[in-house]
Design a protein around this nucleic acid. Structure first.
Lengths: 199, 199
DNA sequence: CGTAACCAATAATCTAGATTAAGAAATGAT
DNA sequence: ATCATTTCTTAATCTAGATTATTGGTTACG
């Protein structure tokens, strides 16, 4: 049974060009992993140096606050990378948990292997530089939304930015992403519906 | 009058090793710029593709919400990079403003020149990959604080993480960073003081 | 200098969103 | 099918933090 690498190679090809040999070498550093819904890829308070590229399903990274509430930092549908970058680069225990929101498969790479890859094929420095820049831009947008918008605006923003996730995710996960309680999101939705129906 | 490049070369040396020639070439791509307090380096709603490395003073990047309130995304004291990464990579108008909180000097590089640099000295892909990874980690921490902590905890966190900025920044800038009104921060401080004095 | 512009403190009032509670619907396991 | 678990809705109450307003203190600067 072969590992599904076409999506990841396609993503890479958007930014750098690899020879067949380089592709093979890269793929040899990946491990395919499958998780059933709710299974955990990695936990807070441990050193977690791996990153995962999702090929099927959906993962999420989240932290748990002092009161036990989950706060979602990122969703990762197919084509996205997910990791606890803090723990990965500092080699210290992180605060992120990563688990599967539905049955999922992913390609996993350990940081050491990534470092190896950088030595062997320096072009990958470029690839990950670009991926990481995209991530910074997304985080900035997220932060600005958080600081300057109301919950309703964040919800509407989420709906228009991630229509796919809207359909598949349970509403409480969306609440944990936009930063409100599920109860309040439910209220928001019914208000939007009411005001939408009248006109 | 020579440009002050020792700090930036020192930062680079932490991550990659350059020959004297490479250092010279890199420095030739930088422009030194000085801003007086409150002067603007770059504005929202325009394409801004430059990044700045601060050597003196302090810059900030911030967005302005619908009600005219400023929300600070990042402070940049000496040794830090600052840019509107979204605009820089997408070449579209961004949402960030960057200005000087005090008289400051910085080394500025245009994205095109950075791209040139990547072609000429690929080691810099590595350098910026690492810098950008650090930035993602910082943004994740910021987001988690925002989602899971109270204003008071964010304030205490800020105090212990950035004691330098505490001393130099006016309080309203700190408020705009931790995400509260200056009035509420003032209240928080006096509560902390009161409860601190009793014991 | 004097006066304008900015900055901090305090306090009263107001509101977005949290909390608590309880029932209805959906999903899943056996 | 049936029971258990998880998810969603609605509604009443509560609170962290916003808003508005007033006062006094600094800093800049013509």
């Amino acid at each position: 049974m072969q590992m599904e690498t076409s999506l990841i190679l396609q993503e890479i090809a958007k930014h750098i060009q690899l020879t067949k040999d380089e592709e093979l070498h890269f793929c040899s550093l990946l491990t395919e992993k499958s998780l059933k819904k709710k299974q955990i890829l990695l936990r807070a308070n441990a050193v977690n140096t791996l990153s995962a590229f999702v090929t099927k399903g959906c993962l999420r990274s989240y932290s748990i606050d002092r009161n036990g509430f989950e706060h979602i930092v990122q969703f990762a549908p197919p084509g996205w990378w997910i990791a606890d970058i803090y723990s990965m680069i500092s080699k210290k225990p992180g605060k992120l948990n990563i688990d599967a929101l539905e049955d999922s498969t992913m390609l996993v790479m350990k940081r050491e292997e990534q470092e190896e890859l950088f030595k062997k094929i320096p072009k990958f420095e470029r690839f990950f530089r670009i991926i990481t820049e995209n991530s910074v831009a997304a985080n900035h947008a997220r932060l600005m939304d958080y600081m300057g918008l109301t919950a309703q605006e964040r919800y509407e923003g989420f709906c228009s930015r991630y229509p796919m996730l809207m359909k598949t995710l349970p509403q409480k996960q969306i609440a944990a992403y936009i930063g409100v309680t599920p109860e309040f999101l439910s209220k928001l939705k019914s208000e939007l519906l009411r005001s939408g129906k009248k006109r």
